[in-house]
């Protein structure tokens, strides 16, 4: 299925761009007239994914993050967040709740939050090549708010 509208963003992995990325996706997805909960779900999931790029994919350098978002006629929004960073050796392990390679103040919840707040999460990763995360969320819209 082809999207009825799509955007491409490309930005550097500065942590200040976490806020930019989720706000941009939220503004774009507003065309589907989402309710407040759906918008917050989407923002949270995008924030987790972009933070992963910044913290894990490019740990010692500033790299580029590629974000694509598409709106579909059936009311779903898809967001793909891609990096050319270090990659994930074991995706299944990385997606386990509370698993983190960094310790400190990372809760290890990134993928768990994405899965909890989206309808589908797909992750492709190759060590040394990068990671691509696709988030799919169905927007019921403001009418379904009650």
């Amino acid at each position: 299925m082809k999207p009825v509208n799509e955007i491409h963003l490309r930005f550097q992995s500065h942590s200040v761009n976490e806020g930019f990325a989720r706000a941009a996706v939220a503004a774009f997805a507003s065309q589907l007239d989402p309710n407040i909960e759906e918008l917050a779900d989407l923002k949270t999931a995008v924030s987790e994914s972009v933070t992963n790029c910044i913290v894990h994919a490019y740990p010692h350098s500033v790299g580029e993050i590629f974000l694509w978002a598409g709106l579909f006629a059936d009311g779903t929004v898809k967001v793909r967040i891609r990096d050319r960073g270090v990659g994930i050796p074991d995706v299944r392990q990385a997606m386990e709740p509370l698993f983190t390679t960094l310790g400190g103040e990372r809760a290890g919840l990134g993928f768990a939050v994405m899965e909890s707040f989206c309808d589908r999460v797909r992750v492709h990763s190759r060590v040394g090549k990068g990671t691509s995360v696709t988030l799919v969320k169905r927007i019921a819209g403001r009418d379904a708010d009650a």
Binding site: R22, A40, K43, T44, S47, E48, T51, G104, E105, R106, A107, L109, G110, A112, V113
Partner: peptide
């Protein structure tokens, strides 16, 4: 707004 960084903050 809060994502899992807030959970890390509490922890």
């Amino acid at each position: 707004f809060m994502d899992s960084a807030g959970v890390g903050f509490v922890l």
